[in-house]
Amino acid sequence: MEKIGIIDFGSGNLHSVLKAFELVASKSNKGFKVEIVQNSDDLLDCDRIVLPGVGSFADCKAGLEKIDCLIQSLNDLVVNKGRPFLGICVGMQLLADQGLENNLTKGFGWIEGSVELINLKSKILKIPHMGWNTLHIENNHKIIKNIDLGENGLHAYFVHSYNFYLKKEENLITTSNHEINLTSMIARDNIIGMQFHPEKSQKLGLKLINNFIEWSP
């Protein structure tokens, strides 16, 4: 039975992430168990790893660093051993080389780029980019297989003020427009990041979670 580990480093609420994964896993033909992981030992036998995160880039990084060897284990399991990985919201932003929220904080450097404040010219559009937006496909990927996206497609729930500015176009899966094209989904090899909250995105969210747990990179 495959184990899906959701990393808990003290960043707010994991409950809905857990429940959303449990619901999707319970409907799958393959057997899955979904668990909250709080230390690097429990991470070792996770076949799939999910890193949710809310709050600031620096706080989330500090929370992860507090757990013994966790970042080293993540590096080993995800980068060296290729286990499927999903970062959500700040959990996606942490994949960058650096984040510029409050002060400069180093990220994992798994996907090249930098996380910076969204700067809009518009006086009408608001920051945070908060609410439901559509996803526009930039590069196709198995994670969005059989999902209706684009202008008239399903919506995802966002709440963020910082954007992941990618260095390489090839890592971009979808964008979401808010005057500028914000990075909404990214990928590299066995790694996926979602800026929005799949666990809060009703229909679309559950479909994406399903594609993630069925995904063979």
């Binding site: 609420n13 409950h15 809905s16 429940k19 959303a20 729930y157 709440v159 909250h197 666990e199 809060k200 995105s201 009703q202 969210g205 559950l206």
Partner: peptide, 11 residues
């Protein structure tokens, strides 16, 4: 809240 968040995947 806990029971709602378990069943409603919305903010």
């Amino acid at each position: 809240i806990t029971r709602t968040a378990e069943q409603c995947f919305m903010p």
